[in-house]
Amino acid sequence: MGTMPPANSGLFQLQYPQSLGVYDDYAGAQKAVDFLSDNEFPVKEVLIVGTELKQVERVTGRLTWSRVLMAGAASGAWFGLFIGLLLSIFADGSSVLATILGGLLFGVLFGVISAAFGYGATRGQRDFSSVQKVVATKYEVLVEHKHLAAGQALLATIPGRPVDL
């Protein structure tokens, strides 16, 4: 196996990129590149670029004090359990359980307090939970300029391609 090139080596760049096509979804762009690959096209000279980015936020629920404190307790419990297990390595046999439980309780307390401060600081201006994602609305297939004509000719023969009127 070869080694990975450095991140700044131009892996995500072409010298003189030209557009082979713009697709409404990633699957369409992927199908085009797969077709090129199946037909011995030099796909190492191809980029799929997501364009027209938009941020999508999915609201997952309403935040209340009880939900915030419960979530803080849960995340704190995991952190405290980890710390307790880590510290129990250095404890003698009789205090291992006490060390783990102490870490767990400390974690719950820390999680509840930090969640309460964080939620209290918002003063009700964001009373909902959500997840965010940046997505592309178009996908452009770019190719090095010297392969443009060959790529266009191949893509013109792709099965299921709509006939231009």
Rank of each mutant, 00 (worst) to 15 (best):
M4W: 06
V163E: 14
G120P: 02
L85K: 05
I158V: 12
F12L: 12
V96N: 10
S94V: 13
G118E: 11
T60K: 06
P162L: 10
H147L: 06
S37K: 12
Q13G: 10
R58N: 14
S130W: 11
A7P: 11
A7H: 14
I83C: 02
T51Q: 10
G2I: 10
H147M: 08
V43G: 01
Q18V: 10
P42L: 05
G160H: 05
G93V: 15
V68S: 03
S114F: 12
V108L: 03
A136G: 04
G76N: 03
Q18R: 07
V135I: 14
L53Q: 13
S129I: 08
T60E: 06
A98P: 08
L14T: 02
L154T: 04
L154N: 05
A150D: 07
P17A: 04
G111R: 01
R58F: 13
R161C: 06
R123E: 12
D164W: 12
Y119V: 00
V143T: 05
A115M: 04
A121F: 08
F41K: 00
T137N: 10
D164Y: 11
K44D: 13
R62C: 08
L97G: 14
K146E: 10
E45M: 11
N8A: 15
L14A: 01
M1H: 07
L69Y: 02
F41N: 00
G61Q: 08
L63C: 10
F41E: 00
V134C: 08
G76L: 03
A149Q: 10
K54M: 09
S9P: 03
F117G: 11
F117W: 14
L53A: 09
D164P: 07
A32T: 03
L81E: 03
F79T: 06
G103R: 00
G10W: 04
L81M: 09
F82S: 09
A149S: 09
W65K: 12
Q15E: 14
A98D: 15
M4V: 15
P162W: 07
L104E: 01
G50E: 00
T60C: 08
Y26P: 01
G61I: 06
G151V: 01
L53V: 08
L47S: 03
V56C: 11
F128V: 06
G10R: 04
Q125T: 14
S114I: 09
A136N: 03
Q152Y: 08
L53H: 13
D38Q: 11
S130K: 12
K31E: 08
L69K: 03
L154F: 07
Q15V: 15
L86P: 05
V163D: 13
L142Q: 00
D127E: 14
Q152G: 06
Q152I: 08
V56T: 15
Y26E: 04
A77Q: 03
L155H: 03
L36Y: 01
G80S: 02
Y16Q: 12
G107R: 00
F82P: 04
P5A: 14
Q125I: 11
I113P: 02
P5N: 07
S75A: 10
K44R: 13
F128R: 13
S37Q: 13
H145Q: 06
L104C: 03
L14G: 00
P159E: 06
L105M: 12
I48C: 00
S95W: 14
L47C: 05
Q15N: 11
Q132S: 13
F117S: 13
M1N: 07
M1F: 11
G111I: 01
A150E: 08
R67S: 08
V134Y: 09
